[in-house]
Design a protein around this nucleic acid. Structure first.
Lengths: 338, 338
DNA sequence: GCAGCGCTGGAAAGCGCTTTCCCGCCACGC
DNA sequence: GCGTGGCGGGAAAGCGCTTTCCAGCGCTGC
């Protein structure tokens, strides 16, 4: 099988020009080539089905056309939306996206970054939420340094004190606004189903929510931590019910957790929103058709992916840029007056 | 910035050995290297933070560590589940996944394949559903040939007469079994919200469903075609309602379409399942918590991704292999007796 | 008329790695 | 003692491309 691959040299020979000329024609260098030769080269390339060897180009140019995208779990709609944004922008720029999934293990993130460095990826978008664990933060920072040293750019989605470009969603502000809106509905006893306490995203949303309740003069919420997943929400909700608190309104720090929580409530015969109001965060498009429709804070996820990709692709100074993205409270049927 | 990248040559020099030796130590060639030298090389590599240049390796070895994954829309849970399976297997094998999205444009698929070829990707998983359009089929087949010529492997998810390894879900059988189950509930008037008629997956599910109805001695369904998306399901359902048919049970050929359809029914005050039963296909995990719970045909999506990746990664003979994956009917609350 | 310039084409030197080929060394057997 | 292998190490030839540098040539300007 394996019919030898067509190389630039073959094209050049066939077209009766030098390697240099062929290269200049086929890759838009600054140098001019006469129309005649140019045509000849283009034609023979076409006819031989020439495809440049990307590895060779990358090696010669010392820069590749790869863009990394690191997420925790591509199955989670939060990440798949961001991924869609990133790939759209990257593909428009003629780049290729390499997808890495960490399964939420910080060390995987470092590994992936190192692999990406080996591939001389031009840029990387780190979409996974940050942790507050010092040790892994440090390792990650070191790896990011190595990566930028080498000429690559890095951007993070969600806040990161990593000195990289960042698109930061208004987690805190969103949580706060949501709390106020819910307080306006007359609720007095709140609970929050929070993610793991070391997750920055979860902490910020929680902190914002608490602040919002304080603004409204409402007592602080009961907080139950759980995994940052559907099942985490489910378990946390069960725990809440078991605690016999008089909660009338629950805030799950992500829509996905809220879905799990609603499932738990339903199983236990707690009606939403009659017996309990519930709100999430993110406004995952796939979940918009659920019943009752989930109140939440809308984040423009795809757009966030696009912005991150944009940041990471146009060079910019060496100042780390930060783009803030506001969340918008959307009250729907899952929350009712109390 | 850009501190020059550490190269093998530097490591070799530092360690006082030849390039060849350093290479042999750091990449597990068949050749033996004495423990002393080996240690020295390993240590200096570690200490210099050496990371091999993947492009250079790819060039020298004439094979890269890239695996392509082509999907229509990573936001669609169907694809993101498959993607999760593919990435898991690829990452375990130490390979890197490059993600391409077509936005359902067949020519994009060809472009992507060509890019992947340029990168000398070792293998590609084509997860997008096939079309029956002759012209694009032919172009795709040509590109696949070029790819395999060059030594790459290709696998498809969902049926494809493309002569590649394939994992084919039991679309037909699943549709048929579903139809029978629904007929058993006593329904007599069915409608199908089908995808675009040229989509093989949609056709097969529909054909199976019709066969199942025939098995049960039930009249053929009304068929309404629409886009293969949530909105497509929504529109198709509206159309169905407008048609004033006496339908009591609707089959949407994907869960995502079913969600759209349910939204439309709800808006028009049609209760599910009291006034209308509805079933989907795929059993998307994210959608399992919806109310009413959707009856569907479960496909092991992640596993399908894993299988496809497995096929494409272990060489196998030149026979095109086919792995069939059965769908399992799951009746839930969205379908009721009639 | 000639120095000087701008422009196009080609030769060749890499880019960082793998791998072939060769060399020197040692142990062994006759 | 010397031929034979086997084995560990290094020199060097690529892999396919980009890009620098140089050569040639037709013009312009004095």
């Amino acid at each position: 099988m394996s019919a030898r691959q067509v190389t630039l040299a073959e094209v050049a020979k066939q077209a009766g020009v030098s390697l240099a000329t062929a290269s200049r024609v086929l890759n838009g260098s600054t140098r001019q080539v006469s129309e005649e030769l140019s045509d000849r080269v283009l034609r023979t390339a076409e006819q031989l089905g020439y495809v440049p060897n990307a590895s060779a180009q990358a090696l010669a140019r010392n820069s590749s056309s790869l863009v990394g995208l690191v997420v925790h779990d591509i199955t989670d709609p939060y990440f798949s939306c961001i991924a869609a944004g990133v790939t759209r922008v990257a593909e428009e720029a003629g780049l290729v996206v390499v997808l890495g999934t960490t399964g939420r293990r910080p060390e995987r993130e470092v590994e992936l970054l190192s692999t990406l460095r080996a591939h001389r990826a031009r840029a990387v978008v780190l979409a996974g939420s940050r942790t507050t664990d010092r040790a892994s933060q440090a390792r990650l920072a070191a790896e990011i340094d190595a990566f930028t040293e080498q000429g690559g750019r890095v951007a993070c989605v969600s806040q990161a004190k990593l000195g990289t470009d960042t698109v930061v969603p208004g987690n805190r502000a969103g949580g706060r606004a949501l709390a106020r809106s819910l307080a306006e509905l007359g609720h007095k006893k709140f609970a929050v189903l929070g993610g793991p306490s070391e997750l920055v995203v979860a902490r910020d949303r929680l902190a914002g929510f608490k602040a919002g309740l304080a603004d409204a003069g409402v007592a602080p919420p009961v907080v139950i931590n759980g995994a940052f997943t559907r099942d985490g929400g489910y378990e946390a909700a069960l725990e809440l019910l078991a605690s016999k608190s008089r909660t009338t309104c629950v805030f799950a720090v992500t829509d996905v957790m809220a879905m799990g929580a609603m499932a738990a409530l339903r199983e236990r015969g707690v009606r939403v929103p009659e017996d309990m109001s519930i709100a999430g965060f993110d406004d995952i498009p796939t979940l918009r058709d659920t019943v009752p429709a989930l109140s939440t804070v809308r984040l423009p996820l795809e757009e966030m992916g696009e912005i991150a990709a944009g940041l990471v692709l146009d060079a910019g100074g060496d100042e780390a840029r930060t783009v803030r993205v506001a969340g918008e409270v959307v009250l729907r049927a899952s929350t009712a007056h109390n």
